[in-house]
Write a protein that binds this DNA or RNA. Structure first.
Length: 263
DNA sequence: CTCAGTGTTCAGTG
DNA sequence: TCACTGAACACTGA
């Protein structure tokens, strides 16, 4: 599910629900894939009794900052989501926090590509310390962006998806950025002109800001974005301007692009 | 039944 | 050592 704009929305919602609350009960399933080395017993004993001080985000990672270490770092993988006060325990719940307010929050994740970690100093330890610039939180100069892109041989699509380069960019954001910047996803970083890199960084900031301000609600995104056309992947689908959309595997992800526009 | 899906990691290669 | 590539991870729904 979640790229930067959606994780930011989760962060805002969780902030309202959690800040200043004390965890009265904490539970998790046994899951060495999502929570390597973290038993339900240890999770419960560490988290119970903690007061939430803040809910933070960097890239696709969100962390719940407690009044003491360690703090709870979460990644939503492909299908992760928060669920608040459901009438019954959600089918794919992975962790459950019951608060002094009486509220209950679940992390659910059917596919289990998400992560649950307890980290002493999230900003200065992996995995968050390994992330590149966050286009919502950080400013980056066009020159630094271009130098970095042009030092690499991989396709620009793969570079944009590299979280140690740009944190929070996912498959559809990368595709829309390259479409709006009119650059083919197959172009190698090395081959890009500074004008092309400039268009890419401008569109990257623009797409992330626009989507995040829209609260990650796709219906509110600009009509011209490929976002609206990619799901379902119809054969022979065209942009509103009448250009054919092509779907192919690039950087080991399905990539939507418009060859007539992107060179 | 088969395949693709808003993501990351790891082994193999050059 | 490093960058790059593609398979693997697990599960659901079309």
């Amino acid at each position: 599910m979640p790229e930067l704009p959606l994780v930011e929305r989760y962060r805002c919602e969780a902030e309202r629900f959690l800040v200043n609350r004390v965890v009265k009960r904490a539970a998790s399933g046994v899951d060495d894939m999502m929570m390597p080395g973290l038993s339900p017993r240890r999770f419960k004993s560490i988290v119970t009794g903690c007061r939430v001080v803040a809910v933070n985000r960097r890239g696709k990672y969100l962390w719940i900052q407690f009044d003491r270490s360690p703090h709870l770092v979460l990644h939503f993988g492909m299908t992760g989501a928060f669920i608040y006060d459901p009438p019954t325990r959600p089918k794919h719940w992975r962790i459950e926090l019951t608060l002094d307010s009486g509220g209950v929050i679940y992390l659910a994740d059917a596919r289990r590509f998400g992560r649950v970690l307890l980290v002493n100093d999230p900003l200065s330890e992996p995995p968050i310390s390994e992330l590149g610039f966050d286009p919502w939180l950080d400013r980056i100069s066009a020159k630094k962006f271009c130098d970095s892109v042009r030092s690499r041989a991989a396709p620009i699509k793969a570079i944009l998806l590299d979280q140690s380069f740009a944190a929070g960019v996912g498959n559809w954001i990368a595709d829309d950025v390259l479409y709006l910047a009119r650059v083919s996803p197959r172009r190698r970083g090395k081959s890009l002109s500074s004008a092309e890199c400039g268009r890419i960084v401008r569109q990257l900031v623009s797409v992330v800001r626009t989507a995040t301000k829209a609260g990650s609600h796709g219906e509110k995104f600009p009509k011209k974005w490929l976002f609206h056309l990619r799901w379902g992947r119809h054969q022979g689908i065209k942009t509103p301007a009448g250009d054919a959309v092509r779907f192919e595997m690039i950087g080991s992800r399905t990539t939507a692009w418009v060859p007539r526009v992107q060179k």
